[in-house]
C-alpha cells in the first residue's frame, strides 16, 4: 500500500501530499528519540505530535508518512516543512493503534 492509497482510506484526510512511498510497517509513538531509535524505513508513523520536529524525524528516518491521530491539528509550520521535505501527513480522529490497524487492514499489510 502506498501513502497515496492510505490517504484514500475511509477515516483519513490529507493535510500534506508528499512524495509517493510504499508503507511497509507501522509505528505508534510520541517520543521522538524512540522513533529515531526504533523505526524502520518506509514506516507509517502514527502520533499526536503535530509540530515541526515530527517532520524532521520523519525525514531523517525515511518514513512513508505521518498520521496525526485523535484529530490533533498540525501547526502551519509543520505543514510548510512537510511540503518542503516531501513528507505525506494524514489526519484521523482515530487513536494511534486503531489508525495503524485500519490502514494495515485496508492495505493488506501484516502487523
Amino acid at each position: 500500500m502506498t501513502n497515496k492509497e492510505a490517504a484514500g482510506t475511509a477515516g483519513f484526510t490529507v493535510l500534506c501530499a508528499g512524495e509517493e512511498r510504499t508503507i511497509r510497517s507501522f509505528y505508534c509513538c510520541d517520543l521522538l528519540s524512540h522513533v529515531m531509535g526504533q523505526v524502520l524505513e518506509d514506516t507509517c508513523w502514527c502520533t499526536v505530535m503535530g509540530n515541526i520536529n515530527t517532520i524532521a524525524v520523519a525525514t531523517l528516518t525515511e518514513a512513508a508518512c505521518v498520521v496525526l491521530c485523535h484529530g490533533i491539528p498540525a501547526t502551519e509550520e509543520m505543514l510548510r516543512r512537510a511540503e518542503e521535505n516531501g513528507i505525506t501527513v494524514l489526519s484521523t480522529n482515530m487513536a494511534e493503534f486503531d489508525a495503524a490497524v485500519a490502514l494495515a487492514k485496508a492495505g493488506g499489510i501484516a502487523l
Binding site: 517520543l31 521522538l32 528519540s33 524512540h34 529515531m36 531509535g37 505530535m49 509540530n51 520536529n53 515530527t54
Partner: peptide, 12 residues
C-alpha cells in the same frame, strides 16, 4: 511536550 526528553539522545 515537544516530544523530546525520552532519555534516548546519547544512547541513540
Amino acid at each position: 511536550s515537544l516530544g523530546f526528553g525520552a532519555g534516548m539522545g546519547l544512547p541513540n
